[in-house]
Design a protein around this nucleic acid. Sequence first.
RNA 1: CGGGGUGUAGCUCAGCUUGGUAGAGCGCUUCGUUCGGGACGAAGAGGCCGCAGGUUCAAAUCCUGUCACCCCGACCA
Length: 603
Amino acid sequence: MPTYWTQTVIPTLRQAPGDAEVPSHQLMLRAGLVRKLGSGSYSYLPLGLRSLNKVIAIIRDEMANAGAAEIFMPTLQPIDLWEQTKRREAYGDNLFVVTDRHGRVQALGPTHEEVVTDLIGACISSYKDLPKTVYQIQTKFRDEFRPRFGVLRSREFLMKDAYSFHTSLEGGAGSGSLDETYDKQYAAYQRIFERCGVPFMIVEAEAGPIGGNASHEFMVPSPTGEDTILTNDAGYSANVEKCETGPRDSDLTGDATGELEAVNTPGCAGIEDVCVFFKKQLKTKLATKNMLKTLVFSGANQRRVVAVVRGDHEVNEAKLRATVGCDIAMGDQDEMRNAGFAIGYVGPHVAIGKDDVDVYVDPDAAQGGFWVTGANETDHHHKHFNWQRDLIDQGVNVTVADIRNAVEGDPAPAERGGGTLQATKGIEVGHVFKLGCKYTEALGVTVSDENNQRVPVIMGCYGIGVNRILAAAIEAKTETRTGHDDNGIIWPAAIAPFTVVITPIAYEGQVKQVVDDLASTLETEHGMDVLVDDRSAEIARPGVKFKDADLIGIPIRITVGEKGLANGEVEIKARDGSNGAKGETITVDQCVAHCVALLQNIA
RNA sequence: CGGGGUGUAGCUCAGCUUGGUAGAGCGCUUCGUUCGGGACGAAGAGGCCGCAGGUUCAAAUCCUGUCACCCCGACCA
């Protein structure tokens, strides 16, 4: 049965509510796909749900192809599971926690590693039971620090999460290894996003709080994306947090620009504060790139790690950790103060005379020239800091290493093809990880091997932000596909709420007859989803129907009016403009065939 | 959590500075004329001015508190 406009709920809006800023958010609201209930939680109206369900159907299909079995796990999860894996702390305030009437504490699942590991762990006992891949499509809860951009960052969202279990890490087809399944999921993801018609790029990523050591993100390029991706011409692409850089020069022996001079900078604990202070109070221009940003971490064995980057750069903890060779953490502020670090005013020379402090500096900061740095005394900074004179000659060892986030313009690593790194913004729609044994170890999941020895179980996990795909499809802007224009959404055919909208100029008499025939033929013989705009002229005159059809972005519109019918003709128009700005006039007889043909050319 | 901002009709917003019975456009209802790209005219309906206190003869407007929402920031010291 075709869907009739008057029988469904499509509350289109002429103006977007004022709190919607990004195009996908505005259009999802205007086209009547979703409505906001509260900060970061959205209801799905019929149009939105239909698209969501189409995405879900594609995901299910590809998961089945990849050999994953669908399951369904609870949202309410005992907090001890989270304590056993130490993730209650790792997730911190992002974890929604509820207490039941008996005072038992539960987490609302932001993800399900703990629960699946517990679940599947109890279902397997032998290496012969592996590999196994399971997945679910379910609502996740995250107490986001700041929900925003509508459905792009919400507190409640739909996620497809798959988990795989193995006894071996590496091995090709038929081995049952983690690598094999990872590759299958990776390929399934490529097909899913291709079929959904969203342009995407695959990016090397940090694993984040999920854990594990190899990971790729699937990103939809868009200016409203919250992630920064760096690429080179040779095809290397990585998330900023992960991106490696090629060699950069350093020169710790560069000349000083003057005598070390203390400057009173009351209340200027931040880089920006100091620059503003210099400009306003001292009438001196000071750029952030002329400052040294000095961070203090606690490392293993009671040692401190002092990391120094240029004021306009960011320390990358993962890189620093790799350089230092042991786990490090941001120090507690009070503890740091007691240990003699003037938090907010720390400079590299804080290491002088301290044998439990190691200094690491990024090449761009390890240069001669003019530096302003913290003076290791609250409310004071130093001008004319010089590495050789003020630190190395004082007996401090300094290690120069890449410890910062990459930025646009950095050299790309030679082994990745070299060249220069370019930055783009992306919306993360999928993420695959090789988890390893993090969860199975924490929860004691093992399996017997050929020799009847208990061996650890290795895991992988694979997530897709289902509703993000909708927003990303609308948001997308590439040479090949645009998700929206001034008139509204332009859906990829595969996830459009309907494939065809039929717009009768007046739904009555012969027009009505033709419309109903077309709708039923398209549905029953070609499996299309058809929306018939049966609103009467009193409710919606033709102009309104056209505007609404454009707004909700249905790929093909067929217009049927008395005038055309007098010549046995109807009009057909592709939303993406692929058959001209005004569409084409064709005979009723050709309409169905032409519609099918047109649809094949629409992404 | 810090900073900034906004809560007035279904939607977008004006009114607040300088207190004096609540406004516009769109949408909605009825009637008429229209009817192929958001029609026109006429007549209507619709608001506890987020909530709670306070000041005042009088509060959407001033004060205090509170809640909600939005933006910016962020273990970067």
